[in-house]
């Protein structure tokens, strides 16, 4: 596939990103920007975390470390914790990549693989023509990524004005949005099994160190769902 992508090809994904996904992204990153300022850190650090890490659980782990003044044990635990919290990027990239085509152009998607674009893409891409899939993803991802940066900056600037109740509601927008996305995919048996197994395995995550909770529960639930599906196939 050629690396040149016509702008018109980006438009459908770009439009799809401007509805509920935009609300969820803006709310979450607005709250993150405010939390960074509350921790005494500057706008460059907030933007670096949002745009370069671009995965909220890992960002929050790193913020906890930074807010504690760098901690006493060096940066290694913070980096490992953030990587573990965002380790879902690995299976997400594995699952998404076959839908992005086989050329080098799909490398353009690399920095943008995160929960929101991934979840939306896994629903939309199978229904699109193969040549439309990568442009759709890039259009969606560019909007989401740009909004993440803008919302982070806005949250950092507006932090002194935000009410704690509003901040909590903003932070809750993200899991609520993901719950709605998962509900939309419940008609597919494989998805339904994975979602139910993941939800049931979630309490197991509480027994693990916080940074490993999500990945541990997800690997357990996802593997059980996968094996159950194979057993019935």
């Amino acid at each position: 596939m050629p690396l040149a992508l016509p702008l018109s090809g980006l438009r459908p994904g770009l439009s799809a990103a401007l509805g509920a996904p935009a609300v969820a992204m803006v709310a979450t990153f607005l709250a993150f920007g405010a939390a960074v300022r509350d921790a005494g850190l500057g706008l460059p650090w907030a933007l670096g975390a949002s745009l370069l890490i671009y995965g909220m659980p890992g960002q929050l782990v790193l913020l906890q470390f930074a807010a504690a003044g760098g901690g006493g044990g060096g940066a290694t635990p913070a980096v490992l914790g953030a990587v573990a919290a965002n380790a879902r990027f690995l299976p997400m990239a594995v699952a998404l990549t076959p839908w992005l085509g086989g050329g080098r152009g799909r490398l353009l998607a690399l920095p943008f693989i995160a929960i929101t674009p991934w979840a939306a893409a896994m629903q939309a891409l199978p229904g699109l023509a193969p040549t439309a899939r990568l442009p759709w993803f890039l259009g969606f991802a560019l909007v989401s990524w740009s909004l993440a940066g803008l919302a982070t900056a806005a949250g950092h600037a507006l932090m002194p004005l935000l009410d704690p109740a509003l901040l909590a509601a903003l932070l809750f927008a993200n899991p609520l949005y993901f719950a709605l996305l998962l509900a939309a995919g419940m008609g597919v048996p494989a998805s339904r099994q994975a979602v139910l197994a993941g939800a049931l395995a979630a309490p197991v995550g509480l027994l693990l160190p916080p940074a490993w909770a999500l990945l541990g529960a997800g690997v357990l639930g996802g593997t059980v769902a996968f094996l159950a599906g194979r057993g019935r196939a």
């Binding site: 899991p175 998962l182 994975a194 997800g218 996802g222």
Partner: peptide, 16 residues
Amino acid sequence: WAAAVSQAVLAAFVTL
């Protein structure tokens, strides 16, 4: 399997 794990991670994220 990777798709199932990713969806389960998301479901666990929402649940927690």
